[in-house]
Each structure stands twice: as structure tokens, then as C-alpha cells.
Design a protein around this nucleic acid. Structure first.
Length: 783
DNA sequence: ATTAGCATCCTTTTT
DNA sequence: GGATGCTAAT
């Protein structure tokens, strides 16, 4: 077996060393003074499994980073003997920075600090051959993954209209999240795709990945799991190596990650997981709250430490958030408290539509700005990214500087992906997906026909496309023109490849992009974006300088798809999704779009039922607890969905707020826009009554009425709701109860039709005019 | 082989 | 209302 490199360059005092003893004898180290008793327990309880339940704003990261510093200071382990896993790149960067702040350069040696995916990739590269890969395997992103699946579907003659590659990708991801190899997929689920071919397609896809010497995100976990299971000696080595293991955001781990962690921690069992069950918001991508709820069973003898003292928010905000989240069942339960002021009550404002919402929030922010508040301390947190546009448009109009966080990412841009495909072809000649992407970009006269030929040959001879191309240019099978183009392309790649070791990677990249004609292509392009694209390419080349070599850069790119080089000094308001806001805090937080269907998301409700509702509520909790001093909730009575204006109903989460801690506020200068919708809420007396007052109900009924077709079948009438949870309607329109085969329905776009089949929330409908379509149940009304 | 025009899908959330 | 992917026309 392959032994691990020695890493002797890292220094940390041996446990018995002078330095360690000096530190110990100096009494309590200074960094412990900054902690409260619970945090200190989280830091000092080093041996055995520990679960730290850290509520929002309770100093979780501080506890975690101090714990690392403590381990290092006591000499219990060296930096490279600590495994510290986070969920996002953002979190691991922050952790590294903060450990560095505590222990200085020592943090540099934390080479096992990173995301589950990054660490898995690192391990996998060291032992690639044991799982049938070469050490330079490519990591495919979602886009590549779908393109590959498309090919698999095509090869199997499966209609990818009826069975879209995207849907298959989601299923496969789901299986991988649950740690299921193709053979382990439950029969019932395997059946459910393409008439029972689900698992078989999964298996074929895995085969293709191996041929391509590639893995997808899920494989990073799956393959390292397999590596550990099939090679106990390798596993034992890592078990021995990691003297202390820390896991951040434990509530977000999926089954595969849990299994991975359990394997790797069985050695010394010094595992410390930090998390908050109330902030578990990634269930949709396989996170299992159960993991954290079950911790004590999984790690017998575990100590549980609760951090409940909140340092972030004022009293009313905390009260509102706590009351909201108390509507969830299945919590471990924490009671956050603060010694601080009550502060301002969170506000609740109703507006006519989403445009007025943007207008009102824009004005409110301007007002704060005039009062001297920093825009950096203001954020707008939305449920879904399409909500952002309205704010952007409005803010551009009024000249309010803003920044969208988590928007289209640098490495997802077309030109960047193309450039990377070139580099991947240079570094990893077997990377067919990359090759395919750029064979004809810029245009070289290598179209479908040529590619078809390449594919045939590659398939027959079981070689990568690049090699197929090489052979074909030497035969007579190609017409002269494509043959020449292909030959010169191959020649280029061969030449570039000889330069890998001769030139710094950023210079090589520049050369490749120029010689391939790629930059020229954009220079010729006259569309308005082309200049920006060229800038991005320059930026890419510049970013490469910081890496030791091309391979290291490509690794970084596949795993850390982000780049925020915007280093301007101007203050900006942040616009981001609620998911993206997790872990952040702001003085003032705007929470727009609290409407049924949008938040909670109808889709989540339809697909996940009660678990989905609770997750949405946790998201609301996350949103509220981001606010330090001001939280401002908005809901609109009308919103444009799929280009059509639809009346909306205030979110049930508004009913979950404690009326005593919330203030109902009229939108600033709303009347000038003739918004009669607002006044209803202004009249609502929220002080001495709950929201379930006659006034509130009237307000809601008003929204119903605005729907135009008063109380028709478009919504289930009160009283015979399909599913009820804690007195709440789960799904405003649950398919099962509403439409049966044969029923007449009406669809806004397709018109009247007859239901042919029902599949969960999807209906197959024979429309009178539009023919047979599969539509979401929520888009049709009984008709 | 390339392009323009048309149809269709969609809209969570991310490693 | 918008992007993406396909078909049909050049």
C-alpha cells in the first residue's frame, strides 16, 4: 500500500515538549478568556465524541476555531493530524483565516481543512489506481454530467424528451447522496426511470466515467467510501493519522458523508461535530437532519454541549425567530437568549405587488443611508434567485449600489468554461467532454458529421476522442477540409502539451487561448458582452498565477467554483438567497416575498410534504436570525410567476410570528402609487391580538378575492383541505385529492383539457387544442 | 455547416 | 419573460 508522505516540514510541539509544558504551566491560555463557559467546554472537551449544538449567533465558529488552536497549543496533535471538514468553500476559508488569526502561520499547515468534496478528492488522488482511476482524473461539474448522461441515454435509444438527462442526473445524485452504488439502488426506485432502466443507466454512466477517467461530485464521496471499504489498510492509515476530527454544519451532512465520517473516525473517536438542527436547509440535496438528531446513538458516550447564548440579535428579533421555529417538531430543542436590549421589533409590511416591494425596500434603504447606516450592513434575503431581478432593476434605477452574492459564478461563464476545456484537454487528454466542447470553438468546420465519426471510432476502439481524432486524420475517412482542421488542432494540443513543464501555467494558458484562435473569436464578436468576456479571460489567466501548476489550478477550479475579485471600495447592499446567507450577519435584513407558494415554496411542499414545510420554516428562521438590529418582512399581494401576474396569499410563516414582537408597518409612501391593498394591513391591530384576527382573515380573503374568480375551484375551499398539519394546510393544491383521470381541467396556457393520468404532482393532460402534455398539477384548475 | 427562427421548458436552493 | 435546444432554411 501507498504510504503517506511525511510532511515533516510542519511543526507543532510534541505533547511532552518544553513549549507545550510551558503553555500548560502558564495556566489557562489567553484565548480561552474570550469564551463563555459553554464555549469553553466545547473547546476543552477534546477526547471522545462531542456534539456541539450551536444556535444561530452563539459563537459557533469561534468555538470551533479555538478548539483547533487549543489542540495545537497543547501539542495534542500537529496541524496535519487534524481533519477539519466544512460544507462550503466559504466556511473552510473562514475557518482557515480565523485559525490563522489565533495561531499564526500554523494554520497554513492545516492541509486537511476543507470541504468534504475537496478532502475526498485529495485522498482519492493519492490512491486513484485502487478505484480504477488515474491520479489526474477530471472532476465533472453538473453541466458535464448532464452532457455525458445525454450520450448514455442516446446510446440506449431512450427518448430524452420523455426521460430528460437532467432528471436522471438528479436521481443519480440522490442515490450517491445516500451512498448507493448502482447495485444497491432499491428495486422500486430503479424501476421509476425509463421503464425500469434507472439503475442500469446509472451503472452505464459509471462505466463511462471510468473510461473518461472522470468523477462527478457525488463520486468524490462514493469512490472514497469504496476505497476505504475495499482497502482496510488505507483506511487504517487515515484513521491513525487523524488524531482529531472536526465537522462544521453537521446538520447538513448527507448519508454518504456520514458513512465517510464514521469510517474515518472509528480509529481514535475524537470527533467533534458542530451544528444546529434548526438551520438544516439542505435536505433537497440529500442532507439528513437525522444525522444530527441521531448523534448520540451513532457515537456512544458522546457529550452534548449546547451553545444558547446569542451574541448577535436583539431581543425582539430573537423572540420572533424562536417562536417561529417552535412550530417545528422533531427538534433537539434549544432556547436562545440574550443579555442585550430588546431593540426594535421586526416589521411586517404588505405591498401591492413585487414592484412596489422593490420600490419600498429601495426607499427604506435610502432612508437608512441618509441616517448614516452602512450599506455593507444591509442585506436582502430572497427565497429564490428570480426574485433578485426586480431589486436589481429598481436599484439601478435609483442608483443604489448593490452586489448580488451567489449569482452567476465566474467559472460558470461560457468563455471561462471554454477556456478551461482547452486547458483540460492539454492536461487530461482523455477528457472527452472537454474535447467535445471546444473541437469546433472557434468554428473550424468540424461539425456534427465529423464528430459523429470520431465518436464511432472512439467507441469501437475504446479510446478517447483525442486519440480517435489522431487516427482518423491519418486515414482517408475524413473529407480533406475537416481532416486538415483536425490535424492542425491535434498538432496544437501536442505542442501545448510539451510546454506544460516548460512554461508557467498562466503563460501557457495565454498561449493556448491565443494560438487556438479563441481570444480572436471574441475580438471579432460585436455583441455587447464580448468585451466583458475578454476581460474575464484575462482575469482567469491572472488568477492562475497563484497556483503552483496547471493541475493544481484545475483541481481548484472544479471544486471551488467561485471567484470574487471585485475589490472595489464602494459600499454596497447585498442581495442573496436565504441559503447563501447562512452563516452571515447584517445590521439590517430585508425579507421579501413571504407569500404562500413562494415561501414556503410550493414545490418543496409538494415534493417533501411535512419535512419540506419544516425545512422551509428553518429557512425563515435562518433569515430572521441573520439580523442584528433590524428585520423587515414583506409580502406582496400580486406577483409575476412565469410571466403572468398572480394574486398571492401571505405566508403561513407570518402567522407563526409572535404578534407581541412584531410591528405591522405601512410601506413608505405607498399611497402615491394608489395601492389600496396596503391600507388593509395598516388597519390591522397586531398589538393585542394574534394574526388570526378577523381583520387578518379579511386581509387574506381580500387577496383571494383579487384572484378574480372569487372562490372557484382554483383553490380548495376552507374546510375540506386535503392535508392538515398542526392546523395548517400542507399543500394548497395537493394533487391526489383534486384531479383524477378523466377530470376536466383548465390550464392558463394550454386551455381546457382532460386528465389522462396522474403521477404525484404531475398530470398528463390531453388538451383540447394543445394535445397531450405533462403539466404540474399546481398549474391547472378544475374546469 | 451554419444560422436564424421557433418551440419548449422552466424557476429553488450548491459541492 | 427568458434561456436553451431543436428544426428548417440557407
Amino acid at each position: 500500500m501507498k504510504s503517506l508522505p511525511p510532511e515533516i516540514e510542519d511543526y507543532a510541539p510534541e505533547s511532552g515538549s518544553l513549549a507545550a509544558r510551558a503553555a500548560a504551566s502558564a495556566g489557562r491560555p489567553r484565548y480561552l478568556d474570550a469564551l463563555n463557559p459553554e464555549q469553553r467546554a466545547a473547546v476543552e472537551t477534546l477526547d471522545g465524541p462531542v456534539l456541539v449544538l450551536a444556535g444561530a449567533g452563539t459563537g459557533k465558529t469561534r468555538a470551533l476555531t479555538t478548539r483547533i488552536a487549543h489542540i495545537l497549543a497543547l501539542g495534542k496533535a500537529r496541524a496535519y493530524e487534524i481533519l477539519a471538514v466544512t460544507f462550503t468553500n466559504k466556511a473552510s476559508r473562514e475557518m482557515r483565516e480565523r485559525v490563522e488569526a489565533l495561531v499564526g502561520e500554523g494554520a497554513q499547515a492545516m492541509q486537511w481543512l476543507g470541504t468534504f468534496h475537496a478532502i475526498s478528492a485529495k485522498i482519492l488522488r493519492r490512491h486513484a489506481e485502487l478505484v480504477g482511476l488515474k491520479p489526474n482524473f477530471s472532476i465533472l461539474d453538473t453541466d458535464d454530467q448532464i452532457r455525458l448522461l445525454k450520450q448514455v441515454l442516446q446510446a440506449e435509444n431512450i427518448d430524452d424528451k420523455r426521460w430528460p438527462a437532467r432528471a436522471l442526473a438528479m436521481r443519480i445524485d440522490g442515490w450517491k447522496n445516500r451512498g448507493l452504488a448502482p447495485a444497491q439502488v432499491p428495486a422500486a426506485e430503479a424501476e421509476s426511470f425509463a421503464n425500469g432502466k434507472g439503475a442500469a443507466l446509472y451503472a452505464l454512466y459509471q462505466e463511462r466515467l471510468k473510461v473518461l477517467n472522470a468523477v462527478d461530485f457525488g463520486d468524490l464521496l462514493m469512490e472514497s467510501l469504496r476505497l476505504f471499504r475495499e482497502n482496510p489498510d488505507v483506511l487504517a492509515d487515515y484513521q491513525r493519522r487523524f488524531k482529531y476530527i472536526l465537522v462544521d454544519e453537521y446538520q447538513d451532512t448527507n448519508v454518504a458523508q456520514y458513512l465517510w465520517l464514521r469510517l474515518i473516525s472509528q480509529g481514535r473517536r475524537n470527533v467533534c461535530c458542530v451544528g444546529d438542527d434548526d438551520q438544516s436547509v439542505y435536505g433537497w440535496r440529500g442532507a439528513e437532519v437525522e444525522n444530527i438528531l441521531r448523534f448520540e446513538q451513532d457515537f456512544p458516550g458522546a457529550k452534548i454541549i449546547r451553545l444558547e447564548r446569542n451574541y448577535r440579535s436583539t431581543g425582539h428579533i430573537l423572540a420572533a425567530a424562536s417562536h417561529l421555529i417552535s412550530h417545528n417538531e422533531g427538534r433537539l430543542g434549544k432556547t436562545l437568549f440574550t443579555d442585550g436590549d430588546d431593540g426594535d421589533k421586526p416589521t411586517l409590511t404588505g405591498v401591492w405587488d413585487s414592484q412596489e416591494e422593490a420600490r419600498a425596500i429601495g426607499e427604506d434603504i435610502e432612508q437608512l443611508g441618509r441616517k448614516g447606516h452602512s450599506l455593507e450592513e444591509i442585506a436582502i434575503l430572497v427565497r429564490a434567485s428570480f426574485q433578485m431581478r426586480e431589486f436589481e432593476e429598481r436599484f439601478v434605477e435609483i442608483g443604489l449600489p448593490y452586489r448580488v452574492i451567489g449569482g452567476p459564478r465566474f467559472y460558470e461563464r461560457l468563455e471561462i468554461r471554454d477556456a478551461l476545456a482547452y486547458l483540460r484537454c492539454v492536461a487530461q487528454p482523455a477528457d472527452d467532454l472537454a474535447f467535445e466542447r471546444i473541437v469546433n470553438t472557434p468554428k473550424r468546420g468540424l461539425g456534427d458529421a465529423t464528430l459523429q465519426l470520431l465518436h464511432e471510432y472512439a467507441r469501437r476502439e475504446r479510446v478517447p476522442l483525442m486519440q480517435a481524432a489522431r487516427f482518423l486524420t491519418e486515414s482517408e475517412e475524413l473529407k480533406p477540409k475537416p481532416r486538415g482542421a483536425l490535424r492542425s488542432l491535434i498538432g496544437d494540443f501536442d505542442r501545448w502539451r510539451t510546454l506544460i513543464d516548460a512554461k508557467p501555467q498562466h503563460e501557457l494558458a495565454e498561449l493556448v487561448l491565443d494560438e487556438s484562435g479563441y481570444t480572436e473569436m471574441w475580438r471579432q464578436d460585436k455583441t455587447p458582452e464580448s468585451a466583458g468576456r475578454l476581460d474575464n479571460l484575462k482575469e482567469l489567466v491572472r488568477a492562475m498565477e497563484a497556483f503552483p501548476d496547471l493541475a493544481a489550478f484545475l483541481e481548484h477550479v472544479s471544486l471551488v467554483m467561485e471567484a470574487d475579485s471585485a475589490t472595489d471600495q464602494q459600499q454596497r447592499v447585498s442581495i442573496m438567497t436565504l441559503h447563501g446567507a447562512k452563516g452571515l450577519e447584517f445590521e439590517t435584513v430585508y425579507l421579501p416575498g413571504w407569500e404562500e407558494g413562494l415561501f414556503p415554496s410550493q414545490r418543496t411542499l409538494d415534493e417533501q410534504g411535512r419535512a419540506g414545510l419544516e425545512e422551509e420554516r428553518r429557512l425563515a428562521y435562518v433569515g430572521l436570525t441573520r439580523a442584528k438590529r433590524r428585520a423587515k418582512i414583506f409580502f406582496a399581494s400580486n406577483r409575476r410567476i412565469h410571466g403572468l401576474w398572480q394574486p398571492t396569499v401571505p405566508s403561513r410563516f407570518i402567522d407563526n410570528l409572535p404578534s407581541g414582537n412584531v410591528e405591522v408597518v405601512e410601506a413608505p409612501s405607498a399611497s402615491q402609487y394608489g395601492s389600496y391593498g396596503v391600507s388593509r394591513f395598516a388597519n390591522l391591530d397586531a398589538y393585542d391580538s394574534d394574526y388570526a384576527t378577523p381583520g387578518w382573515k379579511r386581509a387574506k380573503a381580500g387577496a383571494d378575492f383579487a384572484r378574480g374568480e372569487p372562490m372557484r375551484e382554483s383553490r380548495p375551499s376552507r374546510g375540506k383541505q386535503p392535508t392538515t398539519i398542526e392546523g395548517e394546510v400542507l399543500a394548497r393544491s395537493s394533487a391526489a385529492a383534486r384531479h383524477k383521470a378523466g377530470a376536466r381541467v383548465f390550464h392558463l396556457k394550454f386551455g381546457p383539457g382532460t386528465v389522462a393520468a396522474v403521477d404525484g404532482n404531475k398530470l398528463t393532460v390531453d388538451f383540447d387544442k394543445a394535445g397531450r402534455k405533462m403539466v404540474l398539477e399546481s398549474f391547472v384548475q378544475a374546469g
